[in-house]
Amino acid sequence: MGSQTSALKDHFRAGGELGINHIKLGMWFFIASEVMFFGGLIATFLNFKINSPTLEGELLDVTLVGINTFILLGSSFAVVLGLDAIRQDKPRQLAFYLGITIVLGVIFLSGQVFEFRSLAAEGLTLTSSVFGSSFFTMTSFHGLHVLIGVLWASRNFIKTLRGGYSSSTSIGIELFGIYWHFVDIVWIILFTVIYLI
């Protein structure tokens, strides 16, 4: 079906022609699978919320978690600024913004731990009811994703300080950004589903 030309060239030529970077594309496919994973958890939560509604939702502290939501949104904004900085070859600024991301991520996690503890004090736990089971499972898996993101950001932070990124080698920051924005968007959906509606 074909003859053969001279030496092998760029392996990802076809992706280049489509304007698609293979690493980013792989990341997007991974995100697609993550969407379905959280989709299953959200569907579980909604199933119980609709078919066996309880008053336990009133134990939730919307104000505290609302603040936490803005903290996570802020951290996403910091990643955007960091990516913009490294595209202009400003690694010190990138390190600054990654530092902010890490701090905000840790604050979010601390807020979640605080929330879990106060709910437990009021008797709402993983095993207390279907609401407790689905609430804690879903938010904990999100928290786990935030934790992984914080670890990833810390690793990128160290790599930035060692001069590992420049405007031409910023793919690692971009990948982290895709992941972190995804985790952020999942939280916005969870916040809406759990606390607002």
């Binding site: 989709g39 009811s129 279907v130 089971s133 499972t137």
Partner: peptide
Amino acid sequence: PVLTTGLILVILDRVAGTVFFDANAGGD
């Protein structure tokens, strides 16, 4: 990934005491 979700829920019901599928506690 949706099967993964389901299996995690089964494992949690088995080892962590959640009640997702326990009809006595309102599970489904």
